[in-house]
Structures are given as C-alpha cells and as structure tokens.
Amino acid sequence: MFADYSWSELGSIFAMQGFAGLVLFSVLLLMALGLAIIFGQMGVINMAHGEFMILGAYVTYLCSNFFQAFAPALMGISFFIAMALAFVASGALGMGVERYLIRYLYKRPLDTLLATWGLSLIMQQSFRTIFGPREVGVTLPDWMMGSMPVTDMVEIPINGLIVMAITLLITFMVYLIMFRSRWGAQVRAVVQNRTMAGAVGIDTERVDCVTFGLGCGIAGIAGSAFTMIGSTGPSAGQLYIVDTFLVVVFGGAASLLGTVASAFTISQAQSTLEFFLSGSMAKVLTLLTVVAIIMLRPQGLFVLKVRR
C-alpha cells in the first residue's frame, strides 16, 4: 500500500489527509456534541438529528441567497449571521419537537427511536418539496476562499481553518454551559434523579425542553459548517447520523472529553484509509475496529464516575 510512494510523498499525503481528517472531525464533533447532550444527558435516541443539521444548512443557504440579492455589502459577515439563525431555527424546532412529541415518550427508548425516525422522513420530504431534490451550494465570502501554502506539496484551505476555529469555540462554550453553569448543574441533577430534582424546585420539564433545543441548535451550527465543505441535499443528514452515533457511543455517552477523543480518532482513521483504500472499505475497517473496542470496553473510552 505504501510501496509506490517515497518518504516525502508519504509525509505530504499524511499531512494533507490529516488536515482533511481535522475538517471531518470538526463536523462530526459539532454533530456529536448535540447528540451527546440529547442522548447522553436525556437518554433520547434522536434519529432525526441529521435532519436538524440539514435544516441549519438550508437556513445558511437561504441567508447566502438573501445577502447576495439584497445586501451584497454585508456578504463578508453573512456566514456568521446565517450560523446564528441556523442555531435559532434548529433549536426552536427542537424545543417544539420535545414539547409536543418527545415529552410523552421518556423512558421508552424504542418509541423515541421510531418517532424520531418518522420525524426524519417527514423532514426529508419537506426539504425535498421546498428546495427540490437536487443538492445546493452556499456562496461563501471572498475572504473565506483560497488556501494557505505550508510546503510545496501541502496547502491548507482557509474555510477548513474557520470550521475548526468555530468547532473549538462551540466545544468550549458547551463545556462552560454543561459543567460551569447553574443550568448545567440542573441538567445533571435531573439526569441523576428527576424526582429529587423536582422536589428541590427545579423545573424538570423546562430543563428537558431547553436541553433538547440546545442539542438540536448545535446540530444546526454543524449544518452551517457543513456548507463550507460540501453541498446540501434533502437526505445528506443520513450520511452522518451513523458516524455521529458511533462517535457518541465510542467516546462515552455522557463524556465531553470522550466525544472529542472519539470524533478525532474516527475522523483521522477514515480520512487516511480513504486515500489508500476505497471509501466503503475505510468505513468498514473503522467500524470493525470500533466494534471490537466497544466489545472490550462497552462503557466507551471515557465514563463518568457517579455515586450510586
């Protein structure tokens, strides 16, 4: 597999595939952060998580078209405005879904799986009806285009650097919200003992609603980031949902550090293997490796220690 390349060529290949893996890591991590909040903290299997990502991508697409047509002078900051709107749109829809659907299905994981799977099909068809079956692309500001040369053979796309910077910022904010804020303490209290949390005055229904909305909102941000590296279609979210669940389960459903480590490991493995093998074979080998590790360590890479 490596015999046809010189050492310098292999170094350049690993460098470029490593950076491509970092871009994939950024999207997977944003998706997994939202899913880890919903699945890890609430125990809800949200099969429509990919569609919340695509909702954010379509909001970014609409904003791009709007600024191009009516406010071209603001194109330089249009992407960040679109990202904020994507978070609001996905988060608001997520809160509505929790209030009118998920709330009646807690403690019934199979029912939440079936209900959110049906929701994903409804959202896919809605996207297909509104935007058409073809994939669409977002026009990025000029300053986000191009690449930065590192060596004669290695160049780093500027939009990839921006995606990674956004991911680092969102990850740090999620850490502050979940582990350094009063609201995060309320979320953990509800997860550990809902009855006692309600007894001390915590509005458990409000915590559930906002938590689900936050997870879906982060998926919307992932959709905005996704538009920088790929085109958007009605069913594009299904391409990422399996990898996202894999990241969350492999890292440990309630562990932020585990989610980060798992997303990095899986993205780097897939990116490197895809260059030397086919894309499907890379996924198969990655999946087999992860399954083997989970068989030996079913709680994931990292597990939170709690008092029972």
Rank of each mutant, 00 (worst) to 15 (best):
Q125Y: 15
W183I: 09
V260Y: 01
A222E: 08
A69Y: 08
G146L: 01
S78H: 05
L114G: 02
W7T: 11
A82L: 07
L121C: 07
T286A: 07
A84G: 15
G56H: 03
T139E: 12
V136E: 12
L161T: 01
L29W: 02
A48N: 02
L140D: 09
M123C: 12
G96K: 04
G40M: 06
L214H: 12
S6F: 07
R99Q: 04
Q125M: 13
E274G: 11
L273N: 13
M1D: 08
A269M: 15
I266Y: 10
M148Y: 05
L62D: 09
G118I: 14
R297G: 01
M153G: 10
A57F: 06
A73R: 11
I77N: 12
D152N: 12
V174W: 01
E135H: 13
Y240A: 09
V260E: 01
G230R: 13
F14W: 04
C63G: 06
G160Y: 00
A69W: 14
Y5M: 04
A197I: 07
G40S: 06
G96W: 04
S278W: 07
A165H: 04
S120R: 08
L169A: 15
L296F: 14
L304P: 11
F87K: 10
L287I: 04
P149C: 10
Y175M: 13
M123W: 09
G160Q: 00
N46P: 04
